[in-house]
Write a protein that binds this DNA or RNA. Structure first.
Lengths: 108, 108
DNA sequence: TCCTTTCATCGATATCCGTCGATGTAGATA
DNA sequence: TATCTACATCGACGGATATCGATGAAAGGA
């Protein structure tokens, strides 16, 4: 239910303008969210389904439940995923626009 | 003068296969190389010209020369840039295929 | 040969990050 | 109310990382 901050500028292409400091910080923050094998796997897992319950993730990965929750928070803060609770369970899904925006930052 | 390891699999798209552990590790390593504002700015700087001398980078950024060299090594190890020495100077350039491959990993 | 310049590497340090157990919170059930 | 489950948060610990000064290596010039 959050608005998605879209990357305003392109990072690396043939005719590329210099990034401002806030822009390069924002880009690095987003890449940092993907700079961990577990988080890459979570994103990959979410991309295969509309929604994934946290309980499924804790089963899939050989990590403690707090660790999974920690990674999900990082992905949430980066705007790459969003969550919603239904009853006792929390379901996470990808934010496709955020992925697309990141991809766009890597060139035209 | 190095061969470029191309990302074999796509991370996050509509019909996406699960990543193997080596694949997700390789992807995370490459994203980690971009998970720093200085390195994002270096990539952005390199994308604006064919080649950039290290001396220009040390002038551009308010960081010590060893720190710049450290970041360049990380980008080199990730295969995102390559370098060549001519005389006293070292010139760095982008590896466009690596950037393209990373972009491809973020979807079709 | 000696000195200067350019860049890479080394060693040290402060901070960041991934991980875990313990605890808190909210919903469901009884 | 009491209790159980699913998930988030807290606090702590160990390992990784960004940064620096000092040093090394290689090339050019005096």
């Amino acid at each position: 239910m959050k608005s998605i901050a879209v990357l305003p500028t392109i990072c690396c292409g043939p005719e590329t303008e210099p990034l401002t400091i806030p822009e390069r910080d924002a880009l690095a923050s987003r890449f940092k969210a993907l700079a961990d094998p577990t988080r890459v796997a979570i994103i990959n897992c979410l991309s295969a389904a509309d929604e994934v319950c946290v309980c499924n993730l804790t089963e899939t990965f050989d990590l403690s439940q707090p660790t999974i929750s920690h990674h999900l928070k990082i992905l949430r803060d980066a705007g790459l995923v969003e969550s919603s609770r239904r009853g006792t369970w929390a379901y996470y899904r990808l934010v496709p626009e955020a992925i697309t925006a990141l991809r766009g930052a890597l060139g035209t």
